[in-house]
Amino acid sequence: MSYLDVREIFEESIPVLTLTAAISIFSGFFLNNNEEVLKFLPGLLIIIPSFIAINGNISSVMTSRLSSALHMGLIKPDFRRTSLLMRNFYSMIFISLVSFPVLGLIAGGLNVLFGGGAECMLAFLLITFAAGMTTALVLIFVSMLFSYLTYRRGLDPDNVVIPLLTTIGDLVGISVLLIVTGLVI
């Protein structure tokens, strides 16, 4: 590979970007179809980017850590529950357990600030917590699955899994958040 092969950069970027753009349209569809819910709960709308960012960060950190461990030979891509794998898993779960309730409190506070009712506080905590933990669990398992499968095929999970997973994370995050909101209301 030369340092600056313009054609190669375009050839490698455009397929991945097109795929992620196509997946992201479905996240957009969920947002567009729930416009009324979002207008009704201004606090929920304001935390959507943060909610997505937490999911994206958790799955990128998990994938990046798994990828390094795979490259260094510390984890084998065979789905066995080694202690290193479980430590990574529990750390990500713990981070989710702390981050989502914090976000729920912020959402409730913002909702009051933007003219919503204070009685929504508990609902917001419940929504961010339930939706956040569901999404985080799904993404942690998908991260493991994709990292192992790509590594077995000789690909570098850092390059392939991270962009794909952040896009899937948006889709899972937005749809689960809106479905859980519908259930709670």
């Binding site: 980017p49 943060s50 750390s91 981070i95």
Partner: peptide, 27 residues
């Protein structure tokens, strides 16, 4: 890579919370 669970949490959690606060502006 083989560090403790606590260290992973300690180094990652503050950044994740910080970024989610910045994202509130996007919201």
């Amino acid at each position: 890579v083989a560090n403790s669970s606590w260290r992973i949490v300690e180094e990652t959690l503050p950044i994740i919370i910080l970024f989610s606060l910045i994202e509130l502006f996007t919201g």
